[in-house]
Each structure stands twice: as structure tokens, then as C-alpha cells.
Write a protein that binds this DNA or RNA. Sequence first.
DNA 1: TTAAATTAAACAAACGTTTGATTAATTTTT
DNA 2: AAAAATTAATCAAACGTTTGTTTAATTTAA
Lengths: 205, 205
Amino acid sequence: MSADKKEQIINAAIDLFSENGFEGTSVRELANQAGVNVAMVNYYFGSKEKLFEALVEKRSLFIREKLEQLAATETPTEIEKVDAVVDHYVNRLLLQHKFHRTITLELLLVKRENLHENITRIFARNKEILMTIIQAGIRKGEFREVDVELTIVSLIGSINQVMLSKSLCRLAIAGNNAFDPYTDEAFKKRLTTHIKQLMRAHLLK
Amino acid sequence: MSADKKEQIINAAIDLFSENGFEGTSVRELANQAGVNVAMVNYYFGSKEKLFEALVEKRSLFIREKLEQLAATETPTEIEKVDAVVDHYVNRLLLQHKFHRTITLELLLVKRENLHENITRIFARNKEILMTIIQAGIRKGEFREVDVELTIVSLIGSINQVMLSKSLCRLAIAGNNAFDPYTDEAFKKRLTTHIKQLMRAHLLK
DNA sequence: TTAAATTAAACAAACGTTTGATTAATTTTT
DNA sequence: AAAAATTAATCAAACGTTTGTTTAATTTAA
């Protein structure tokens, strides 16, 4: 029972934190959505804030693997690796978009800075992998000598700009007032195609 | 007296909302920072939420002008206009980074969606102008036939990714653990140079 | 029969907001 | 021009709610 309820609470927390933020979500609301008694949150996690920490801890473990494997796999050209990274990154962000929004929201705020370090570690690992790939391309003479760090910023930033908020996405993409950027397959294809094109134009000699 | 205090309250609100979010900022905290009595917030603005609306209303008026003027000015090539847009956009975001963060934070959340429309209008106008410039470049044969909307997403996204949060910025840019992305001139130069380069590689035939 | 899980109820603290009184400034009346 | 009436600005105090958390009692599981 215990593991189940803990999981339910974490899921409810991701749902609500991603939509209303940490301060905008009450423990009662959260317990109600998880279908448990209010007291269970503090019984299992100690406090609302520690629940947040546990949430980050639990979900971030799941992330790291695939990207590393992807970077280690040999490919004929380095740009193909970049393509694969774009595909993977977009897919992963779509799959975990609520979790991703939750921790990004947290990073934008100044309160609870002790949590920032934990979140930072997740991002830092991804950055390292992307750095390795692009630097390899430069060393081999396949890529231009670009600003590697800011190239990664543009790659991630392009995705975040539309993925983090439906409002922002609807704003950027005209016409589709009712579509959901997190599930629309056509949009996903359009986004990955654009970013790959952008990176190829930017990186290739 | 009235105009002064209203302005003080709005300034305090931008300061605090940008760091702690709307829900994370109490009216007492806000009034204290503004140096006014707690009651004045509701006396002048009606409610905490209406203060937010007034804040958006007031500060968004200031924004529109320069970009429009910039789009209307003739230049030898269209890419020069893109360069100017990048310079202007980065400068403007730096100048108003707290306001920009405040309204972006609001867009990421789902609560208070009535406010979203007001904020959306600000972004939409900027998008229109950027669309015009890039489409002109394509029509003249100077630019490739790129995905115009997503090109704008990449331009803005590249800036937002580092500008919205010091945590995110420190994460992206190694070594400079103590530097402030909103005031560091060298970083501003580096960012604009990168984005201009990225846009040239992406747009020019 | 212990120990763990779950609950309803209660807790103090903090929340946004309203109140009624007071002062300062402005307008109206004489 | 002086007095009276009206309006606007400001304040401390209190309002009723909601907040995160804790307690103490009860149920469930081992």
C-alpha cells in the first residue's frame, strides 16, 4: 500500500505543480487529487517541500540513460548524432513534459534555492553529453568552430520556448487554437525538422 | 501623491513577482517593500490580482515602439534588419528583465488565464513584426524558405533560455559562477554574436 | 498483539481583504 | 476671505479563510 500511495502523491504533485506552481498548490488539493488523506503527505514525506525534493529525486533517476548511450554509439558523421539528440530530446520532453515544466518553473524562481542544486545536476549532465558531441564534430573538422555552449542553449531553448507553455506555443504557431503541443504528432515532426535544419546550417561547414 | 505610491507598488510587485512568483509574494511583503500600508494595495488596485493586471497594462505600453520603427527603416539587406532585431531584443530584455520574467512565469502557469490574453497581445505584436522581416527576406530571394514561425521561436528561445533564470544561465555558461547575466556586458556581446551567426547560417542562401 | 497505516479533527500562523477612524487636501457655501 | 462640507489618502486593527502541519484516535496488516 505504502509504495502505491507515495507514487500517487508524487504523480498528483507533478500534475498540480506543473500547472499551478509549488506555492499555488495546496496540500489539501494535492491529497484530494491523489485520493489520500491530507495527513498522508506529511506522514510519508515529512513536509510539502520535502515531497518536492523526493519528487525531483525519484523522477530524475529515470532520465539520464538513453542520452549517454546515444552519445557513445558510433555514427558515420557527427551531425547524425545531433539529429538523434534532437529526436530524443523532443521525445523525452514530450513524455515527461509535466515534470520538465515543474522543475523549470522552480529554476525560474529564487525561493527554495537549496532545491536548485539537485535540479541543476540533471541539466548539467545533459549539457556535458551535448558538449562532447559537438566538440567531437569540431575536432574532426566536420563542424565549424561555433560557440558550443550557446549552440546548446539555442537547441534546448528552441524546444523549451514552445514546450513549456501551451499559451506560448499557440502564440508562436498560428491557426491551431485548439491543438495540444504535447500530443500533436504533426507539430512534433515540424519542430524536430526545423531544429535539425537549424543545427545543420549552423554547424556544418 | 497617488501616482507616486501606485508606481512604488507596481515596482515592488515586479521585483517580488519576478523572484518569488505571484502566489509566492504576500501583499504584506509587497506593501513593506513599497513602503506603504497594506491597505493601499487594495485601495488603489482593488485586489492583488487586479494589481497584476494593472502592472501588465502599464508596462506593456512602453514596449512596442522601437521594434516597429526598426522594421520600417530601409536597409541594404534584410539580414541587417535581423541583426538589428537581435541587438534590440537582447537590450530590451536586459532592461526589463524583471518584467519579462514576471509575465513569462505567468504564461507558464494555468491559473488566472484571463491575464494570459493581455500578455499574449504583447508577444503577438512582436511576432508579427519579426514575421514581416523574415518573409520580406524570403520574397526578395535573400533568405531560404525556412519555417518562419519556428525560426522566430529559436531566436526568442535562445535568449529566454539564458535570460529568464540565473540558475539556467550559470548552468549553460561554465566558469562564471558569480556573474550576473543581466548586467555582464561581455556576456551580452557573446550572446548577440552567437544568435546573429546562427540566424545568418540558417537564413542566408 | 504489536506495528504500521489511515483518519477526522484541531493547531497556530499566514493569507488577502475590509473596516472604521483620522488626517490632509479640495471644493462649496456663505 | 473665512467657514463648512466634501473628498481623497492613510493607517492600525480586525475580519473570515486557508495555509501547512500535528495530534490523538482508529483501522488495518503482519
